[in-house]
Amino acid sequence: MSVPDEDVTLRGISLIRAFTDGAKSRNVIDDVSIDLHRGQVALLMGPSGSGKSTLLAIMSGLLKPDAGQVMARENGRWLDIWKMSPREREQFRLRNCGFIFQGYNLFPALTARQQLEIILRWGDGVPGKEARKRADEMLGLLGLAGKEHKKPAQLSGGEKQRVAIGRALIKRPRFCFADEPTSALDWSSGQVVIDLLQKASHEYDSTIIVVSHDHRLLEHVDVSYQLEDGRMMENAIPCPTDTWRGHQ
């Protein structure tokens, strides 16, 4: 089973990132290279402090590595996102990136619909009517039809995470970064969330990277990576559900 190289969309090359604690400096990410593919959900696993979230931050353009490159393919062109200016990187993230975090981070005052609308209106300047239509469509796909007017306090944990997923996917991003998206949920809600991410990666041909320490997710992702002490232990283990859609 192999993945065609032209399907690689995000590539980390020899990444190093050190954190200083007093006089001591420690490599949290230690010479990590990783290839991520379109249409796949990749699971990044490892114990606490292994550097998973740091690697996610580096790959998503939020945290600069001390050494190495992050290359992203956009419209057939490879871009080194850490050679971009901060403004260019912000624009890159606006065009290409969605984020999901463990804590939902939904605006308490806004309805489910507004949480999604705000991304389209503030990010892409989509007119109100169209933003509303697209938000409602996305909420429908996420099984939240009829809950457009609900505010976070009126939604369950699973529903809130689905709204957060909708917010990340509303602009159909090339890359979606999810940090522990299921850890605050019971397993059945967690399953729904990871399956939604699976579906989205296939439908939008997105590259989705999930950071988690929950082994139960292994059965629901396309590929997994194991980090320990900042080093990649096992590289690109295809998972049981892996189908490499269209590339077998």
């Binding site: 912000e90 993230r93 606006l94 969605g98 984020f99 991304i119 990010g123 917010r167």
Partner: peptide, 18 residues
């Protein structure tokens, strides 16, 4: 109090001026 919600928007590339 809304810093984390705003941080999500910034992560997704929403300009800070918004």
């Amino acid at each position: 109090a809304s810093a984390k919600e705003f941080a999500i928007l910034l992560a997704m590339g929403i300009p800070r001026w918004r």
